[in-house]
Design a protein around this nucleic acid. Structure first.
Lengths: 197, 197
DNA sequence: AATATTGTACCAACCGGTCGGGAAAGAGAG
DNA sequence: CTCTCTTTCCCGACCGGTTGGTACAATATT
């Protein structure tokens, strides 16, 4: 059964979220998962394969919860946007404002030196941006043209959130993220307003 | 003469900017600086001491260039703000959108697990935010009250920039940062406008 | 019997850090 | 200027411990 493989991935996901990829040592994983080395290398070819699998695993959970359940729902786009913000804050509260965003962390750690990781993280951000842009387009209404401009705006909102999480982590204070989110809300209001005319 | 110590710090700063603290190994430093191990440990007690010294060194350069030369100049606040944005973009262009921001990188890597590093990075962001808040206060004019609200806004702008840099790094495309900066400009315009009434 | 799993001894390479001794550079005396 | 003595500077062998990864035998499962 590949239960075991999944178990190893889950355990590693938590470790890598907190310590990053390189600083999560194989020994940490083996200890936390309570398995031997031979067991690990039966399911994975290398640490890198595990890392990528972890990224996929987190993304799938994340895609389900945020991109599908929240952002793709059949609701008022303002509601969806607010639910997204609340969800992001909640995720950070859950780990006491300490770990930050897994994708942001990995982007910082890996994207310069490992192209495979970089591309995976890039695609996460792109999918997030896409879905968010669609929500903004719903806000604007059926007359929404210029996809490119909406995409750019959505990308900047994603950047705001990632930056808010980063700063929050460095101050270990959730209020920082909440402030940034307040500004994001205002920005969206202005963007939609200006776009509608 | 402590020329040598300074030389080691400079070399290490470049390495740590690109690879982070933990993944910059002592051997990398020794090789890049062309010194022996004994030489290193004559000037530094440990790798951690070097790391902190590197942070101080980068911050001092950074403080001089951005906080003093640009943000504290006796100029129109709009000009200073624009110069800051241009400076940030320029810094990123210089390393081909690959390294990101040293302080952002170290915030992500270290702040959860090393309180000393965390506090140093936190103080960098705080000083930046303070100076920026003062520039915004200048924009508003002599009637600017509620320092707290301006500080919060400035912090959110800093977060936007850090987030823009992070996303830029993951896509290795400076255009991302430029979009975010465009939104930052708009946000400031709105903030000042709303504040003045 | 064959295949999927697992424990563990082992590996070379590498980690940050220590250590003893040698080179160099002053300092003071004559 | 030269002879020492002392201090600063520097090298690289070496240390114990850890790294990601391998080999292989033993055990479960089918």
């Amino acid at each position: 059964m590949s239960d075991k493989r999944q178990h190893i991935i889950k355990i590693s996901a938590a470790l890598m979220h907190s310590k990053g990829y390189e600083n999560t040592k194989l020994s940490d994983i083996l200890q936390a998962a309570e398995i031997g080395k031979g067991n690990f290398y039966h399911y994975f070819e290398s640490k890198q394969e595990l890392g990528l699998a972890v990224l996929d695993y987190i993304f799938s959970y994340w895609k389900y919860a945020l991109l599908e359940n929240i952002l793709s729902a059949d609701k008022d786009p303002e509601v969806k946007f607010n639910e997204m913000l609340a969800w992001v804050v909640n995720q950070q509260k859950r780990n006491q404002s300490k770990c930050g965003c897994v994708f942001g962390n990995l982007a910082v750690e890996m994207s310069e030196h490992d192209e495979t990781f970089r591309r995976k993280v890039e695609s996460v951000f792109d999918q997030w941006t896409d879905k968010l842009a669609r929500v903004f387009a719903e806000m604007i209404g059926p007359a929404a043209g210029n996809d490119q401009q909406i995409f750019k705006f959505a990308q900047s909102i994603v950047a705001m959130l990632e930056g808010g999480i980063l700063l929050m982590k460095s101050k270990q204070d959730i209020a920082v993220l909440e402030n940034v989110i307040e500004l994001a809300r205002t920005s969206v209001r202005h963007f939609i307003q200006q776009y509608k005319q």
